[in-house]
């Protein structure tokens, strides 16, 4: 039997309709993309194709689907962020006009952004490292992002971002080594667990490194 017994028959009975819906939605989204000539509309329709991808992954059910959906979401987010940056920088080159990095109606000129960011960012990163794993990476990433946003006016040393991209690669290696240890030497599973969780921590936290691509072009350079 292909499906293990612990999967409930109700979930198994949902498999065919979900796959059909996923393929249908993906087809609709791709059809829309093929008709569009406007780049921004294509970017928005990419979101629909991403939803179709998530439906197909969700059809796997059980905990495996949950483990596959989380990286899928992160990849979709990074993809949309990167493509929107490319669209904007191309338009900026074409028209030669500069606009604000974050078009918000408020002027973010608060005292807390000048005095507190060191402490708050340090506290968030330390708590994220303590948590490890996906959640820890998200917490530490928010800390780094807060630090970056509050320092925008003074400029960021962008050698820092190059280093973050390198750390991201090392994190992949840690993660893969952790998985290998799980399968090859199951008796030292604790080491594998910690390798993967620390790798994932660095990986998710350095997703903010994408902001560094913007930093190279737009933040004030020193």
């Amino acid at each position: 039997m292909l499906v293990p017994d612990l999967v409930s028959p109700f979930v198994v009975s949902l498999y065919n309709p979900v796959i059909a819906v996923g393929i249908l939605v993906g087809f609709i989204g791709l059809l829309g993309i093929s008709f569009q000539k406007n780049d921004l509309s294509v970017l928005i329709l990419t979101d629909i194709v991403g939803i179709a991808m998530l439906i197909v992954v969700a059809a796997v059910a059980t905990d495996l689907a949950e483990a596959l959906i989380l990286p899928g979401l992160v990849v979709e987010l990074a993809e949309i962020l990167a493509i929107s940056e490319i669209l904007m920088s191309r338009e900026m080159r074409k028209s030669g006009k500069k606009v604000e990095l974050l078009p918000v109606p408020l002027s973010l000129d608060m005292e807390i952004l000048k005095t507190a960011p060191n402490f708050i960012a340090l506290a968030l990163v330390a708590y994220g490292v303590f948590l490890t794993g996906f959640t820890g990476g998200a917490v530490a990433g928010v800390g780094i992002l807060f630090y970056v946003l509050s320092k925008t006016y003074r400029g960021i040393p962008f050698g820092l971002w190059e280093g973050m991209s390198g750390a991201s690669g090392i994190a992949w290696c840690l993660w893969i080594a952790g998985f290998l240890i799980f399968f090859v030497f199951p008796q030292i599973w604790l080491l594998g667990l910690f390798l993967s969780s620390c790798g994932l921590l660095v990986k998710v936290a350095s997703k903010i490194g994408l902001v560094g691509v913007m930093g190279r072009e737009e933040f004030k350079k020193e």
Binding site: N38, L40, L43, I44, D47, L73, V74, E76, L77, I80, L81, S84, L87, M88, E91, M92, S95, K97, V99, E100, L102, P103
Partner: peptide, 22 residues
């Protein structure tokens, strides 16, 4: 993630409109 994606897309729309793109 949906909230963040909506924010990113709206930011792209606002910035492209400020540059006067079609």
């Amino acid at each position: 993630a949906t909230v963040i994606i909506t924010l990113i897309l709206l930011r792209a729309v606002v910035r492209l409109e400020e540059m006067g793109a079609e």
